[in-house]
């Protein structure tokens, strides 16, 4: 069985990234990392590999040169190979263009299972997995809290906790699956894993390799445009009273004052 995990290199949100003049996330001088949520997708793939060692596991990212770091990090956790799609023309792509490029790479990689996380930690739109399923005409099983892959019968099942019901979904492979942080702790790369990752094959592909016309991606082809960005005024700390036996009463006063009571 072949698994491809789509991983995104994102700015570390703890470092509070700003924006460039053309309204993109300013990645200069901001620490980048493998999206924390993608680590859960990597973990789920590694669990399949642990159980079925003939599984072949590839990581795929679309992004600038630095995005290779995310691939190395994933390879250090385990797996076999990585593909980095990088091309200057991709800069400024929106979700449909990103999905178009990922889908083209996935067609070449021909996985039985495409794994994603429920959302990236920067854009966080959750659009990409659904768009991949649409492009590739594959079943989509998304927001998995639990994932079971049965290579024997070529089926995949997930459980997910919707806001109205807990659902069990099933599809025949190939399929696109996205996982949540509820699927379980992601492993840390070992020292041995980090060393081994340096020797694992990492290929770089450009748009021409994939046959994707450059005018279908990037800022020029974006189907959305950002006109303005404003930081919300930061919330300011109000009053904080120590509880000296009447904290609840003072809180009730505050809520009455605000007409909540």
């Amino acid at each position: 069985m072949r698994i491809v995990v789509c991983v995104k290199h994102v700015p570390d949100m703890a470092s509070d990234p700003g924006f460039t003049a053309d309204h993109r996330v300013d990645r200069d001088g901001v620490q980048g990392r493998l999206s924390e949520l993608d680590e859960h997708a990597v973990e789920q793939a590694l669990r399949v590999l642990d159980a079925a060692p003939d599984t072949h596991l590839t990581y795929l990212t679309v992004g600038p040169a630095a995005a290779a770091e995310a691939l190395r990090r994933a390879l250090a956790m385990g797996g076999h190979a990585a593909v980095h799609v990088s091309d200057d023309a991709i800069a400024g792509s929106d979700a449909p263009a990103t999905a178009l490029v990922l889908a083209a790479a996935l067609r070449r990689l021909e996985p039985d299972l495409v794994l994603c996380a429920m959302a990236s930690t920067d854009g966080g739109t959750s659009l990409v997995p659904a768009m991949l399923a649409e492009h590739l005409a594959l079943p989509q099983l998304t927001f998995a809290a639990e994932l079971t892959v049965e290579p024997g019968t070529a089926t995949v099942r997930i459980r997910r906790d919707g806001s109205r019901a807990t659902e069990e979904l099933r599809a025949t492979l190939p399929a696109v699956v996205s996982v949540t942080d509820r699927t379980g702790e992601a492993r840390y790369p070992s020292f041995k894993g980090i060393m081994a990752a340096k020797k694992k094959p990492l290929e770089t592909w450009n748009l021409a390799d994939l046959g994707v016309p450059a005018d279908q991606v990037g800022a020029g082809a974006a189907r959305t445009v950002v006109d303005a960005i404003t930081a919300r005024p930061p919330r300011t700390a109000g009053t904080a009273l120590p509880d000296e036996g009447e904290g609840g009463l003072r809180l009730a006063d505050f809520l009455s004052g605000q007409k909540f009571v």
Binding site: P242, D243, G248, L255
Partner: peptide, 21 residues
């Protein structure tokens, strides 16, 4: 980010608030 805060044990403060409401 709190407009109003109470520094204390929630097991004291919250029931007192509920009763008062």
């Amino acid at each position: 980010l709190a407009d109003f805060g109470v520094v204390g044990d929630l097991h004291q403060v919250v029931p007192q608030l509920t009763d008062e409401i």
